Simulated assay, not measured.
Amino acid sequence: MYAYELLFRAAGTGDANVTNDLSATASVIAHAAELGMGNVIGTSLGFINVDAAVLMSDFIQFLPRHHVVLEILETVEVTEELVARVEELGRAGYTFALDDVVADSANVEKLLPLAAIIKVDIGELTPGELTQLSGKFKRAGKKLLAEKVESHAQFRQCLELGFDYFQGYYFARPTILAGRRLTPSQIAIMQLMAQLASDAELSKIEQSIKQDASLGLSLLRLANAPSGGVTERIESLGQALKVLGRQQIQRWLQILLYAECDKSRTAASPLLALAACRGRLLELMAEKIRPGDRNMACIAFTVGMMSLMDALFGLPLEEILKQLAVADPVRDALLARAGMYGDMLNLAECIEQIDSARPQLAPLLQKLGLSAEQLYALQLEAFEWSDAISTPVAA
């Protein structure tokens, strides 16, 4: 995980609802400042779109120069004044990227010496054009970022062409590998999840945890965490299970699945953050739609967390669900996006693919009885929660 791109999206379901890119970028900066840039991007970089008005403005200096990359939009008219401003900001320590490059244009030539990163829109190029363009920029000593990577084939091609960074929804999709199997620890976690789903007695769950020493130690650490509010030290698994309760144990196991994968796959940490955010968002939606129904909220959380298991394990979701005794509404939501949980999951996925899925937002919001403003507030709350729990668990 190298960086996040920070984009302005209005709470409504229409377009950005701003008059120009200056307003949009100002909104991005304002929201990032409100949440705290460290909370938004952690130790990664933040890519932010800028046009001529933004570059010439004073408020751009509110951005921490060593933590952001300024993406110069492809629509910017490159004048002598703009080049001079980019040079000035470069001397001040800002890093620049050229956005949505699809050809070797005059604008690109003027700004190429000042940019460190070239973002190539691979969806607009033929394989031959991509090879030629990437070769030119590599020879110029630039870092290449492939954007709109939507398939494994595209990813492999860009990798072979020497691209340094990759961006696109492909990275939350699975690559199915024939003969792949779950590790013993993953199987143990999933068996425990199945026990919880079947309402097994805590004594039987305790016996299962005792068969995996690492699970037992992890559970005790969780029970004794300062955030748990426990005043006395928990020293037995039985105590830990009683203190935490079934709902918390279920969440712990779901998160552990993603953390376990992190030992062998560097992509697991971003997947954990995305899955946790989805789970919490669906839970909050359920609480808003049906206040006081904790069972519905718990099921919604499970659907969100489990929705990325195929990407995590590189296995078809159908095969994973064969090892879990999940309820029919969960299975229907995950496999067919059916029912209320399926609608909520669809809505969460639309948010992640907002540029292509925007037309679906209004019907889904209406179907679920949520307003755009409510969704925006729930998104922020879900993000803050997932950001808080993802890093320490994945570490």
Rank of each mutant, 00 (worst) to 15 (best):
246 R>W: 12
249 I>S: 03
204 K>Q: 15
129 E>Y: 00
393 V>G: 02
368 L>F: 03
32 A>D: 02
355 D>A: 13
340 M>A: 11
129 E>F: 00
255 I>S: 03
368 L>A: 03
177 L>P: 00
90 G>M: 01
87 E>C: 07
301 F>S: 13
188 A>C: 06
254 Q>T: 05
39 N>P: 00
359 P>D: 09
335 L>S: 02
114 L>F: 13
9 R>A: 12
259 A>Q: 10
200 A>K: 06
1 M>H: 14
335 L>N: 00
283 E>L: 10
380 L>V: 14
353 Q>W: 09
209 I>C: 04
297 A>Y: 06
300 A>S: 06
228 G>W: 01
260 E>L: 05
266 T>S: 14
80 E>A: 12
12 G>K: 08
68 V>K: 07
374 Q>E: 14
101 V>E: 01
95 T>W: 11
25 T>W: 06
74 E>G: 00
131 T>G: 07
334 L>K: 05
266 T>R: 14
6 L>Q: 07
375 L>W: 02
237 L>N: 11
106 A>D: 15
359 P>N: 08
152 H>V: 11
139 R>Y: 12
34 E>W: 05
297 A>N: 09
81 E>F: 03
141 G>R: 01
116 A>G: 12
119 K>H: 05
224 N>M: 10
352 E>Y: 15
137 F>A: 08
193 M>T: 06
379 Q>E: 15
106 A>I: 09
393 V>C: 12
97 A>N: 05
184 P>V: 02
230 V>H: 15
356 S>L: 15
6 L>C: 10
319 E>V: 03
88 E>M: 10
250 Q>A: 13
351 I>T: 08
167 Q>W: 07
211 Q>F: 08
356 S>C: 10
378 L>E: 05
114 L>E: 07
145 L>W: 01
22 L>H: 07
93 G>R: 07
85 R>I: 02
35 L>M: 05
163 F>C: 00
139 R>L: 14
91 R>V: 13
141 G>L: 00
74 E>I: 03
245 G>P: 00
293 D>N: 15
392 P>F: 05
195 Q>R: 07
78 V>S: 09
205 I>S: 01
126 T>A: 08
197 A>Y: 08
101 V>Q: 01
248 Q>C: 12
342 G>P: 03
149 V>F: 04
275 A>W: 10
22 L>S: 06
332 D>M: 12
44 S>Y: 13
74 E>R: 07
163 F>S: 00
29 I>D: 05
73 L>R: 09
195 Q>N: 07
319 E>G: 00
12 G>V: 07
373 E>N: 09
63 L>E: 03
221 R>S: 12
78 V>Y: 06
42 G>V: 02
133 L>F: 01
222 L>W: 12
169 Y>T: 09
297 A>V: 08
220 L>C: 07
163 F>V: 01
2 Y>A: 11
66 H>K: 14
100 D>R: 09
127 P>A: 02
196 L>P: 02
121 D>Q: 04
91 R>M: 10
128 G>K: 04
392 P>M: 01
345 L>V: 03
324 L>T: 06
264 S>M: 03
71 E>K: 10
